[in-house]
């Protein structure tokens, strides 16, 4: 028998659920369409979900034995559902953002400093509106939102 779905990871957390093929496609297509990161990048990983969070976890030879463990956390927080949008986490972008081909915002050190302090900047660029990768001198810092001539920081 399958275990029931549970929500969050906390002290008595149960295993996050393995998502359906369609849901996986949806999340990975977002990464491909938005950043040009191909789905094969994640072929050795499972996508698991708790509430509005998607977690990336290495594909084990068998999942069942691990599911008998009482876990605190499983894998890396990868993508979140924010209202009807998917939003990449900064951690995941820091890890995989080097493979991105588009929607990357390159900032100079001073601009990055200001963005981190003030949380938003007036910003004009030839980009599609939506979530972007914030990069500075070859280092990927994480997630921002570009919309209406502004860059908003989602850096941790």
């Amino acid at each position: 028998m399958k275990k029931k779905r549970r929500k969050k990871i906390h002290k008595e957390a149960k295993w996050p659920r393995v998502i359906s093929f369609e849901e996986r496609e949806e999340v990975l297509s977002f990464w491909e369409e938005r950043f040009g990161i191909p789905p094969e990048t994640f072929e050795n990983y499972l996508l698991l979900s708790t509430a509005k969070n998607y977690w990336l976890f290495v594909k084990p030879p068998e999942l069942r034995p691990l599911q008998n463990l009482q876990v605190q956390t499983v894998g890396l927080l990868f993508t979140r559902r924010v209202s009807k949008w998917l939003k990449p986490t900064s951690t995941a972008l820091q890890r995989f953002g080097h493979l991105a081909t588009k929607n990357i915002v390159e900032l100079g050190p001073l601009e990055l400093d200001r963005l981190r302090r003030e949380k938003r900047l007036e910003f004009e660029a030839d980009l599609e509106e939506g979530y972007v990768i914030i990069k500075c001198e070859k280092k990927i810092w994480g997630c921002g939102l570009y919309a209406k001539g502004k860059l908003i920081s989602y850096l941790p």
Binding site: P65, T73, V74, L76, R95
Partner: peptide, 27 residues
Amino acid sequence: VANLKRLGVASALTTLYRGEVFPFGVP
């Protein structure tokens, strides 16, 4: 957990057992 996140590790899960009674079942 903070270090796993900081280093971008996706291949670990975490548990909170006394090692002496860690459950059997994973090969």
